[in-house]
């Protein structure tokens, strides 16, 4: 049975007369973008909280945007990503005093998702940068866990699961820190979102992590990397993602000879009985002359031509072919 629930995480850059810009440049670019994803066969769409007002402006409301997606073969908007990558005096997950403000922000985002078909995941970056948070103690993790327990309860009331996406440069990155965090958070409220590249860069095996936290896993970013962080790049101020001295590009699309074992993960997913959305992401695909359209096409090609095989093999093995 073909896996139909593939969604696309809304990073994309396209050429415009004002240089390379996100398709939110104007409605015509946005329409073309959605058509291209549709041609590839994606049926889910994940986006960032900060794009919602733009899409609302172009399509007469976020539900109007979702209807446009649906007219183009999508099921719905599947996930909303929200984050505080930089700790500020107003917002910093490891600082308890800022939690009210973060919760208020989340409430605003939830309001914008009203009347949608059913966003499933409220995806969050659980902490700000490592260098702003360190030292990362048991206590730090406890404070962060309290925040997301609170947000998780809130989002659940709106039908969305709060699910944590761990950056390699975030404050919760090692296996031990992840375990502590999951211990301190309520399984009912706080879930796990498995980004294959981020964990790999941080030296954590994403397949094993999924195996261990399958019950709390509500989604994936399928993306690849060619580097494990071996130089403490994760501590680079002000930003490790783009400014690490040793590595200029961390993320790659699937199928380009990276470190992540996607067929292995796919088998694990089938074996686990997980039947939710699988999301394709590739940040900064344009670095080194790349193109998002091509990267997305090549990644989807990989899904249909390689992962589909891995899935079929796993299903055959399990005798669960329907």
């Amino acid at each position: 049975m073909v896996w139909t629930k593939w969604s696309y995480m809304d990073h994309w850059v396209t050429e415009t007369p004002q240089g390379p810009q996100p398709p939110s440049f104007n409605r015509a670019y946005m329409d073309r973008y959605v058509k291209q994803l549709s041609a590839l066969g994606f049926t889910g769409f994940d986006t960032f909280f900060f794009y919602l007002p733009l899409y609302a402006g172009m399509y007469g409301g976020v539900p109007g945007f979702e209807r446009f997606l649906q007219d183009n073969g999508f099921d719905k908007i599947t996930g909303i990503f929200s984050a505080y990558p930089s700790a500020t005096k107003y917002t910093a997950p490891h600082v308890r005093e800022t939690h009210d403000r973060i919760v208020a922000d989340c409430t605003n985002t939830l309001r914008m998702c009203e009347a949608l078909t059913g966003v499933e995941n409220f995806i969050v970056m659980p902490t700000s940068t490592y260098y702003q948070t360190e030292p990362v103690t048991d206590d730090t993790i406890k404070v962060v866990a309290d925040l997301w327990n609170r947000v998780g309860k809130l989002t659940l009331e709106h039908g969305m699961k709060t699910t944590c996406h761990f950056e390699f440069w975030g404050a919760i990155r090692t296996r031990a820190q992840l375990e502590t965090f999951f211990e301190y958070t309520d399984p009912e409220y706080v879930h796990f979102f498995c980004d294959t590249a981020q964990h790999t860069i941080a030296g954590v095996d994403p397949v094993q992590l999924f195996r261990d936290y399958r019950d709390r896993c509500t989604g994936f970013h399928f993306k690849d990397t060619k580097n494990v962080d071996e130089h403490e790049a994760y501590r680079t101020p002000p930003d490790p993602e783009l400014m690490a001295p040793q590595v200029t590009r961390w993320f790659y699309e699937m199928g380009e000879g990276g470190l992540v074992d996607f067929p292995g993960l796919m088998k694990e997913i089938v074996a686990s009985g997980y039947d939710g959305w699988l999301t394709v992401e590739h940040d900064k695909a344009e670095l080194g002359g790349g193109s998002y359209a091509e990267a997305t096409a090549v990644a989807k090609w990989y899904i249909d031509n390689v992962l589909a095989g891995a899935q079929a093999a796993a299903e055959a093995e399990l005798g669960v072919a329907r």
Binding site: T14, E15, R32, K35, Q36, S38, A39, L40, S291, A293, E294, A297
Partner: peptide
Amino acid sequence: HPAASALLAGY
């Protein structure tokens, strides 16, 4: 933008 053209045509 060749890939975009192919995808739009595919659509």
